[in-house]
């Protein structure tokens, strides 16, 4: 310690070995908590594998049909036609299998993000201390370059889907936390008082008043989480997460502009479909609430 102090005093530039400390921390975590990481890893792998197996088990026409039907129900017949065209194009370009893998990765990462993010968001809404502590962490998670998460994730969990999904979860949690917390805090005081005045317990207040009224905001958070997750699972191909990201990555490695364009287009089409459909859920609820306040 005194050596560090001396260097800081004499030649301060580059004297602080923060990176070394982080390396030491990671090594220590790996040495002492290997069992915990293995357990987490196998749970995540189990989830991701079963989501992917489920999606791939469906015949192509049925999976496409589900999305077309969702588009028809939530938006319009025009959007349903667009969904059919978009997925048809992906299929004929030969990217269907990769797209389904990417969809599975995105859905798995989104599920985990919401499973962790929504309770933290509820906690932040109920406690100012929690809010003050969590907010800078979220800012850090969101602004840290996404690639940086891949390295420790790969060290802890090896290459493959698991580090990709977990790095994605870190990147995609913030909107889930933020919008859940915001939604609950925005519930009108008199609505909360009404819940209490009619004898709600703390749980009843949360489940019957606060969460339902916050649902449009939470759905906006779900939408953003899905979008963040989709962008991150592409990057996560660098640690072998698979899916469309592999094609994007190999197009870069081989300087194959055509492949890059095709795989990129598949990502964009998938993003549009997911975005519009999840957005419509939040909007429908918001319209119902806007005039009731």
């Amino acid at each position: 310690m005194s050596e560090l102090w001396q260097r800081l005093m004499t030649t301060p530039q580059g004297a602080l070995p923060l990176g070394d400390w982080v390396n030491a921390l990671i090594r220590m975590l790996m040495d002492h908590n290997g069992g915990a990481f293995d357990a987490i890893g196998s749970v995540v792998e189990g989830l991701a594998a079963s989501v992917e197996a489920m999606l791939l088990a469906l015949p192509v026409w049925m999976l496409m049909g589900v999305f077309v039907a969702l588009g028809l129900w939530r938006l319009s017949w025009r959007f349903a036609v667009f969904v059919l065209g978009a997925f048809g194009l992906i299929y004929v370009m030969g990217f269907w299998h990769q797209t389904v893998s990417t969809l599975a990765l995105t859905l798995s990462a989104t599920c985990l993000s919401l499973l962790l993010g929504v309770p933290v968001g509820i906690w932040c809404a109920r406690s100012n201390v929690a809010n003050v502590m969590v907010r800078p962490v979220l800012d850090f998670m969101q602004t840290m370059p996404a690639f940086v998460y891949l390295i420790p994730a790969a060290m802890f969990f090896g290459l493959g889907r698991v580090p990709g999904i977990l790095a994605t979860v870190v990147f995609a949690i913030p909107p889930a936390v933020r919008l859940t917390s915001l939604g609950i805090r925005q519930v009108n005081t008199e609505q909360v008082e009404a819940g209490q005045a009619f004898g709600c317990s703390a749980w009843q207040l949360l489940l019957k008043v606060q969460l339902p009224i916050a649902l449009p905001a939470i759905m906006a958070g779900v939408n953003q989480t899905i979008m963040m997750a989709l962008s991150m699972v592409i990057i996560a191909s660098m640690v072998g997460a698979g899916g469309l990201g592999n094609d994007v990555l190999s197009s870069i490695q081989r300087l194959d502009v055509g492949l890059g364009y095709e795989s990129g287009l598949a990502v964009v089409l998938l993003a549009i479909v997911l975005d519009r459909i999840t957005e419509s859920f939040g909007k429908g609820m918001a319209a119902r609430q806007s005039r009731a306040d």
């Binding site: 609505q191 009404a194 005045a197 009619f198 004898g199 019957k208 009731a292």
Partner: peptide, 29 residues
């Protein structure tokens, strides 16, 4: 909580209805 459920209720200036519930479900809240 027991007293509020059993013997008193309240009406609010901004109505404070639950927007996700029907009129019937609001009345039955």
């Amino acid at each position: 909580v027991d007293l509020r459920r059993r013997d008193m209720s309240m009406v609010f200036q901004s109505f404070a209805l639950m927007p996700h519930r029907t009129v019937l479900d609001n009345a039955a809240f």
